[in-house]
Amino acid sequence: MSCVETIQAYAFRSLGFGERLLPRGEYTLCEHFTLIGSGLIWNVYFGALALMTGFFLAVALAVGKSSPNPMFRKPAEWFIFVFRGSPLFIQFFFAYACFLSLKGVSGFFDPFTSAWLGALIVLFCNTAAYSGEIFYGALLSIPKGDIEAADAYGMTGWNRFRRITFPTMLRLAWPAYTNEAIFLFHATTLVFFSGFPAWRQQGDALYYASYFADKTFNPFIPYPILAFYFILLTLVIISLFGAVNRRLNRHLPQERRQRFRLRPNLIR
């Protein structure tokens, strides 16, 4: 099979399109690249959706945690503590077990036991907790003068939050939030190793990489390819978030802008 044919057959293998059977015997480099790249679709799917939906819960959690009312503060604190204090791996296992037993109760929970929804929910809660803590930290470090100026203009409540607090919080939190996004994408590789079944061998990039490594007993080809893809993905995230960061900071003089620094200390 030529490389073009391989790409045609396997480029969307992880979604169930194209060839059913995985390649056998001697694997070509092209097959490695195509299948692992095909698996990357899942990583992007999980990461992007969890990030987008988790953002809203994260803001709510941050506001809740900084609220003086314990009715809002306590649940937000507990949510953040539970999801940040326990390993993501165990969260996946626990959620999968829960969904599996709920499935017995009602057919409504059927889709929850498959990765596309069940794992997404776990990742959504997880990233909401981590980002919520980041946003909470940013809320605490909003310059006092900004709030006072808002008060002086007579802004209160929702108006003040929407125009002053929220944009400043986002601006301050953005570099750390970029990090969180990168490591969320890394965390998506855990999904198919933690209970959630890869239905018809439709897995993510790491699933295929470890499939190749298992079959060929040679880790030196699939994992560097996986690394290549993830470095590419990381660069894309950094450039996307960098563009947003420039927009958030555009009203500030050059030297006061927040720079992004990659801080690689966030496995979950």
Binding site: F193, L206, S210, P219, F230
Partner: peptide, 17 residues
């Protein structure tokens, strides 16, 4: 090495390697 690549990939890689 840890910057751009998921750590779990390293775990799986290093054990065999």
């Amino acid at each position: 090495i840890v910057r751009g690549v998921p750590d779990i990939a390293f775990f799986l890689f290093f054990v065999i390697a």
